[in-house]
């Protein structure tokens, strides 16, 4: 079952179109990191257990490690590299720095993409609900309080898109 046949797909990542030839067994995460060199999206488990690989596909947060790249042919993908508006950081990014919402920084891109997707979903109203709906993103440094504080500030400040 050695899949030798490559497929031509188009991924729109952070407003840039990439035409790539890819074997069907390659995950979206590995395409981003190894083919497009967008290493901001992290691999923490490769099994959909940690959330470090979270990206936004057509506005929704997904786990890029559980997604084959060929499944997202034609999709618009936003990774952590595309979250800021040029030099201007996204409010969530600013709040993360201000609230010291990371230590090692490895889960951070996933937390930020997940937070943006979560706010857009509009389901979480209270702090507890935000905590619950962010619980798919693990942080081993224990920056949890800062992460939730940062998200709550943006949510309550109403500056999210």
């Amino acid at each position: 079952m050695e899949p030798k046949e490559t497929h031509a797909i188009t991924l729109n990542v952070n407003d840039t179109n990439y035409q790539i030839q890819i074997l069907p067994w390659v995950s979206l995460l590995d395409v981003l990191r190894e083919e497009l060199h967008l290493t901001g999206t992290k691999k923490g488990c490769d099994h959909g257990q940690c959330g470090a690989c979270t990206v936004l596909v057509d506005g929704k947060r997904i786990l890029s490690c559980l997604t084959l790249a060929v499944m997202k042919d034609g999709s618009a993908i936003t990774t952590i590299e595309g979250v800021a508006d040029g030099e201007n950081l996204h409010p969530i990014q600013k709040a993360f720095i201000e609230h010291d919402a990371f230590q090692c920084g490895y889960c951070t891109p996933g937390q930020i993409c997940s937070a943006i997707g979560m706010l857009k979903e509009g389901k979480a109203q209270t702090r507890e609900e935000v905590q619950e709906l962010m619980s798919g993103n693990l942080c081993r440094c224990g920056a949890n309080r800062g992460i939730i504080n940062a998200i709550m500030e943006v949510k309550e400040g109403g500056c999210h898109e």
């Binding site: 060199h37 967008l38 590299e81 950081l89 990014q93 720095i97 990371f102 920084g105 891109p109 930020i112």
Partner: peptide, 21 residues
């Protein structure tokens, strides 16, 4: 003081060992 490398970490620009081309 907020972490000086904060911007690199929130924009995905911080490179870890397995990420160098």
């Amino acid at each position: 003081i907020s972490r000086l490398e904060g911007r690199l970490k929130v924009t995905g620009s911080a490179k870890y060992a397995g990420e160098y081309e």
